[in-house]
Structure formats: C-alpha cells, structure tokens
Design a protein around this nucleic acid. Structure first.
Lengths: 106, 106
DNA sequence: TTGACATAATACCATATGGTTTCTAATTTA
DNA sequence: TAAATTAGAAACCATATGGTATTATGTCAA
C-alpha cells in the first residue's frame, strides 16, 4: 500500500523536514535537540520525525530514555533513482542544467 | 513568499504529477492528452498542471485553442541543488559504510 | 522511592489538498 | 452563423496535513 518512493517524496515535501535532514547530516540528535532549533512543540517535531522515519530517511535508536535520530543515506535511494529516469532526457535535451545548478549554488 | 525549492518539492510530492512529468519527458501534450491517460477529470489534471507550472517544472505555450504543456528541465534545478548539499556527506558516510562492511567480512 | 526528565499517545483544530460538478469563454470547423 | 472542441474558473466536498494541548509511560538520579 505505501509506495517507498511516495513515502520518500512526501517526507521531503515539507521545509521543516528538509531542515531536519540537514541538521541530522551534521550530527545525530534527540527529539529535544531538534525541537530546540524550531519554534514549535516537541509533539510537532515528533510527527515530522515519524514521517521522515516512514520515508526511510532517518533511523531511530533507543539509548536509555532517549531516542537518537540519525540520517539514513540509503533512504534517499528511491528519490534518486526516480530522478535517474530523466538522466537520458537531461543529457539529450540540455547539457546546461549542471552548469546552471553550479551557478545557482554561489 | 513562495520559495522556489518549496514549490518544486511540493510539485514532486504527488504521484500523479510525477507520472505527468515522465509523460511530458517523452512528448509535449495538451491537457486533454494528459487527462486521457488518467482516470480523473480534466479539471483535476488542470490543477496538477498548475502546480507543476508553479513549481517551474513545466512550461505552457498557447497554440490556437490548445495549450501545449512541455517539461522544463531547468525547473529541476532547485531540487537537485538541494540534494547537492548532501553530496559530501553521502561520499563520507557511504564509504564509511563500505569499509564497515569490509571489516565485518573478516 | 520520589521526583525530574525524555518521549509517546491521544484528541482536537484550522487549513491545504485532491477530487468532483457545473458553468463560462475562446477557437475551429461544418 | 451554428455547433463542436479545448480550455479555464468557481463552488463545493472529503480527507490529509501541520500544528496544539493534555495525558500517560518509561528511565535516570538524589
């Protein structure tokens, strides 16, 4: 019922969740850690973490009374492989895309 | 108000819209063309096309009484450059993972 | 053992989202 | 010109989504 790619894309659709992923790429965090960086309740953050977990983008490890949230690089697989579909298309129709992106990053 | 990356991710979050993008990567289509491939009304398809257009992922050209919808490769820029943020991270962690696996095999 | 701490779970709310139906406007074409 | 075709717009509906507040559970430390 729940398509992995769909869960993945859905998880990435929210800006708060994308920010959380960037944070987790720097260091593992508990819910309270993450909540401390946002102007919202721990409950709201917990929901976001659940969506990220459902999408396979993070993993959660219990440690004592805490839960350590870590990013899961392998979880990006479904999204990236969806983009792979367009690789040939991009190569054919436009070689400027990559340079356009590089410019965008400055 | 509307962050380009957000509009982009939002547009990609729906499976119907992702399918439309795949179709449009094969050939340009009118709304009726697209609607013919789905079990939903033209009005619903039109809404999806609007979201895709807002996200910059497609362009629409009037031709007579028709509107030609085309995929816009440059529109993927914001999403792809967001993923670029993780490039270094992926390289690091995935190689860690690889060595961990190698170690495990001894 | 008692209290403080970290998290989970539930009920609830407002708005966004994906869909429908109906009606209108513009462009072909017979 | 009249009829058919293509598209847009508006009103409406059910459900999903992002948030809150409240209550409950498990774990550490004094």
């Amino acid at each position: 019922m729940p398509d992995p790619a769909q869960l993945c894309f859905r998880a990435l659709a929210d800006p708060t969740r994308r920010d959380i992923l960037k944070m987790l790429s720097q260091q593992d965090m508990t819910i309270t850690d993450v909540a401390g960086r946002f102007d919202m309740t721990r409950a709201a953050v917990k929901k976001h973490l659940t969506v990220l977990s459902d999408g396979g983008l993070i993993t959660v490890e219990p440690r004592g009374r805490e839960r350590i949230n870590s990013i899961n690089p392998l979880g990006f697989g479904p999204v990236l492989s969806w983009f792979d579909y367009f690789d040939g298309f991009w190569d054919d129709r436009l070689s400027d895309l990559k340079t356009a992106i590089e410019k965008d990053k400055t």
